[in-house]
């Protein structure tokens, strides 16, 4: 069976951007293959939205065409042939770009035709997009009267209706309730099967659940890029919280081999930290049963984005220190 790497749909090289004298993006390069979901992870103000705006042609990079700066969509140069390249992009900005006075159907047809679809093709695409985004029941409603969750879905439908090769989503799940978030994440995974998706987020869990690959951004630079599975190693903390209905004094927990530290959070809740190579949960469970502590809950600790950042930057400084 011949295995060829999927084609590269988006390739950006050496993007730099500043607003006034304030540099926002430094020398950023990205590549994306078909069938890949890339998560752009970073704090607010890290430059995620600016990067996505440049990738979609809404914002020109500084001194475009100089210093090897280029953006290619499906092999077409976005800076030289914007009209050709842009028909392969679907873009959902931070605020969905909705004409609130139009009906969902009218708006989506407009979005499809704007990207160069014919009138008949646009109608067919409308059915598909409404089905995929769960908009079957609201086709004739005015967008302004829809709830925030539905508006966000219309925004996503607008970005995928013309079946673009590259789908750019800027914080697609902000402001949605948990069940909607789950639906949207499922949709993004599905989109990733035949297009490339790049999405920005500041939620670690979002990256873990939908992305194949992660690029972490800080102060306008990509500081780390890897598969999301490997990034999760950084996200793991050797610890858990437990709730006991009949808790012993903390000293008793502390005595279990492997446990480094016990913090009492409330009467029956403890946070337990242990050595990375010595997980005491089995020992703890046996003890809990023997002594009748009545274990109710055992949750592994989740690292915050902050923790991951600190670890990655620490790892980097350590690595550069070694090479010196």
């Amino acid at each position: 069976m011949p295995t060829t790497a999927p084609e590269i749909t988006l390739s950006a090289r050496k993007l730099t951007r500043s607003f006034g004298s304030q540099p926002v993006i430094h020398d950023l390069s990205l590549q994306l293959r078909r069938g890949e979901v890339l998560g752009l992870l970073g704090h607010n103000g890290a430059g995620k939205s600016t990067t996505l705006q440049m990738l979609t042609g809404c914002l020109l990079p500084d001194n475009a065409r100089k210093n090897g700066c280029s953006i290619e969509i499906c092999g077409i140069d976005l800076l030289r042939h914007p009209a050709l390249a842009k028909s392969h992009i679907g873009y959902l900005p931070e605020t969905p770009p909705l004409y609130r006075e139009l009906s969902v159907n009218d708006y989506l047809i407009f979005a499809a035709r704007l990207r160069g679809m014919g009138s008949a093709a646009a109608r067919e695409a409308l059915q598909q997009a409404r089905l995929r985004c769960g908009l079957e029941s609201v086709g004739n409603k005015i967008i302004g009267t829809l709830s925030k969750g539905y508006q966000q879905r219309v925004g996503i439908a607008q970005a995928i209706i013309h079946r673009p090769a590259v789908i750019v989503l800027d914080e697609p799940t902000v402001g949605l309730d948990p069940s909607q978030i789950r639906e949207i994440r499922g949709l993004i995974r599905e989109l990733g099967n035949n297009s490339s998706v790049i999405l920005s987020t500041h939620l670690l869990s979002e990256v873990e659940s939908v992305c194949d690959r992660v690029e972490i951004m800080q102060h306008g630079r990509l500081i780390y890029g890897d598969t999301s599975a490997r990034m999760q190693q950084y996200g793991q903390v050797s610890g858990f919280t437990i709730s006991l209905r009949n808790p012993p004094p903390p000293e008793e927990l502390q005595a279990i081999p492997g446990i480094n530290r016990v913090d009492q959070l409330s009467a029956g809740q403890f946070r337990i930290l242990y050595d990375a190579d010595n997980n005491p949960s089995a020992a703890l469970l046996t003890l809990a049963e023997q002594r009748g502590w009545q274990l109710q809950q055992l949750t592994p600790l989740q690292a915050t984005l902050e923790d991951v950042f600190v670890r990655i930057t620490d790892a980097e400084t350590a690595a550069t220190g070694e090479t010196r």
Partner: peptide, 14 residues
């Protein structure tokens, strides 16, 4: 103001 300009800007339009 409504940020709908992004739709036109990212579409293949001059």
């Amino acid at each position: 103001r409504n940020q709908t300009l992004a739709l036109l800007m990212s579409a293949p339009l001059s």
